[in-house]
Design a protein around this nucleic acid. Structure first.
Length: 491
RNA sequence: GGUCCCAUCGUCUAGUCUGGUCCAGGACACACGGCUUUCAUCCGUGUAACUGGGGUUCAAAUCCCCAUGGGACCGCCA
């Protein structure tokens, strides 16, 4: 296997990203693109972004833009297409119709393909029948050897037709970089439809033509395409095209092990993007789904992945998309961010508080105080909302530490207020020294009697950053105000 | 139903090719402990897996066979 790859080092390695713009970029698809990227970059290859929009009904321009946007966000780059670098003509299949037409005509002429006039309803009925008898649904070849006369008559009558490719009965074997030798018996397959009309090619056909014309050397795609492979190989042979090398990636799975789908959670890259996942985390996570370097290392940047990646270490079985691990990785990368860049990233999630009006320095302090608590950027909103509102809403009961009564809480807050009103410096370090010493005095056994009520008074929350950090950010005036607000709650 | 693919902790996986160093390693999650006013971070400890059966062998997670289980595909979608 390794030898094969090394052999390819002499040849130019070219892979393609071939998404279909029929919806948002799917996580599973993004992972396929990532693996293509890693494979190509690892071996100094080229990457083509080709848009598979032969299905004009479902393809939309905005999805092409979304694919580009999200790939850019992820940092996954490509060399050609979809609008630039047109060395091999356009990179959108919808703009390559003339090309496909030429090859369709060729196949028709050589009798390797033929017009089929069967009605969809009839075919569906046959399929049902075959399936109910326990047979593999397979086209029966009704129109395979129609006389030219019949064909002409049908055309004259405007009978709807499609173009089918004659599948020869043989065993098709291919070497998969991940699965080794795979063999299919094509006698179990019927003649496939490769185009609706001369101007409407279908996936299996367009792919084969484009991969050849774009000099694609390796096709790295999801395992769900593995049964298309023998059909495509037969097409290549019929057209006299070069062979490509395949690598079929294991699928991404729902927790119940079925193919990853919307019903089990978010599947669009944009969903994760919007919800505050970092591209670094998503890249790292996707790479580990079905691949690992064989060492204990599990934190990787994109460029480290390129260095360490090897396709023969890709797993054969599907991988469950485990959100907890993503969250962990995301938290890790959030903690790695510099204060200023993390602040910039968080700002959109604080928009409703008009956070921009606060000084960058204050914002950075807020974000820094909560850095370790973020799993997602979007968490910042609920965690730090109390900095941005005037009056805090909370139940006075939470002001009490352990068994404290209202009276004791009030005494505690009063002690804090007095201490803070005369504090010389109001930065968190000085405040910590001062308040910890006071807390010791207030109750020698447990600092909580002073610190807990203070912290809750400042934040209005049972869980928060330390009172020292919060007080520094709020400033003396607001800090004292919040303490007095708390005390008045206690009547 | 047919074809193809796959099978190690709950999850992602190392180990399988080249059998012994594996009473199976790491990470996430979980539990407990440390730090600590809280939560989080950080640190430490722990629970937890070779699908089953047969065979080959001095020796099997590792090689072979069968069974079982899971998945994908079977479209005038890609």
């Amino acid at each position: 296997m390794l030898k094969k790859l090394i052999k390819f080092k002499n040849k130019e390695i070219r892979v393609r990203f071939a998404p279909s713009p029929t919806g948002p970029l799917h996580i599973g698809n993004a992972r396929t693109l990532l693996f293509n990227y890693l494979f190509a970059k690892k071996y100094g290859g080229q990457i083509v972004l080709r848009i598979e929009d032969t299905d004009t009904q479902r393809s939309e321009l905005r999805w092409i833009q979304e694919i580009i946007d999200e790939l850019t966000w992820l940092g996954i780059e490509w060399d050609e297409g979809p609008d630039v670098g047109g060395k091999f003509g356009p990179y959108k299949q919808s703009q390559r119709l003339d090309i496909y037409k030429g090859y369709l005509e060729k196949l028709l002429q050589e009798k390797k393909a033929y017009y089929c006039f069967c009605l969809p309803e009839d075919l569906e009925a046959k399929r049902q029948d075959q399936q109910s008898r326990g047979l593999a649904p397979k086209y029966d070849g009704m129109c395979r050897d129609l006389l030219q006369k019949t064909i002409d008559q049908n055309f004259a009558k405007d009978t709807p037709s499609v173009i089918r490719f004659k599948i020869h009965e043989k065993k098709v074997k291919f070497t998969d970089l991940i699965r080794q030798e795979v063999e299919f018996d094509t006698s179990l397959m019927g003649d496939i439809i490769i185009a609706k009309t001369l101007n409407e090619p279908l996936y299996n056909f367009a792919v084969v033509v484009d991969d050849f014309l774009m000099h694609i050397s390796h096709v790295v795609r999801g395992e769900d395409h593995i049964s298309n492979t023998p059909r495509q190989i037969l097409l290549q042979e019929a057209l006299g095209f070069d062979k490509v090398i395949y690598a079929h990636l294991p699928l991404l799975l729902n927790p119940d092990k079925s193919k990853m789908s919307k019903r089990a959670g978010d599947v669009a890259v944009s969903d994760y993007h919007k919800n505050g996942y970092l591209s670094e985390a998503l890249i790292n996570f996707m790479a580990l789904l079905g691949w690992n370097p064989g060492t204990d290392k599990d934190i990787f940047t994109l460029s480290q992945l390129v260095k360490e990646f090897s396709i023969e270490k890709v797993q054969k079985s599907g991988a469950v998309f485990n959100l907890q691990k993503l969250d962990y990785l995301n938290g890790y990368y959030i903690r790695e961010k510099s204060p200023s860049s993390l602040t910039k990233l968080c700002l959109p999630y604080l928009a409703e508080f008009n956070a921009q009006q606060y000084s960058p320095k204050t914002l950075e302090k807020i974000i820094e105080a909560y850095k370790a608590r973020l799993k997602k950027l979007s968490d910042i909103k609920d965690l730090t909302d109390f900095f941005f509102v005037e009056k805090l809403q909370y139940d006075k009961k939470i002001l009490a530490w352990k068994e404290m009564g209202d009276r004791e809480v009030k005494a505690s807050l009063d002690h804090s207020a007095k201490t803070l009103s005369v504090a010389k410096k109001f930065d968190k370090k000085s405040l910590e020294e001062l308040l910890v010493a006071e807390a010791q005095k207030f109750n020698s056994k447990n600092r909580g009697y002073l610190l807990w009520p203070l912290r809750v008074a400042l934040s209005g929350k049972e869980a928060s950053a330390s009172p020292f950090e919060i007080a520094e950010i709020l400033g003396r005036e607001k800090t004292l105000q919040r303490i007095s607000d708390a005390m008045s709650k206690l009547s």
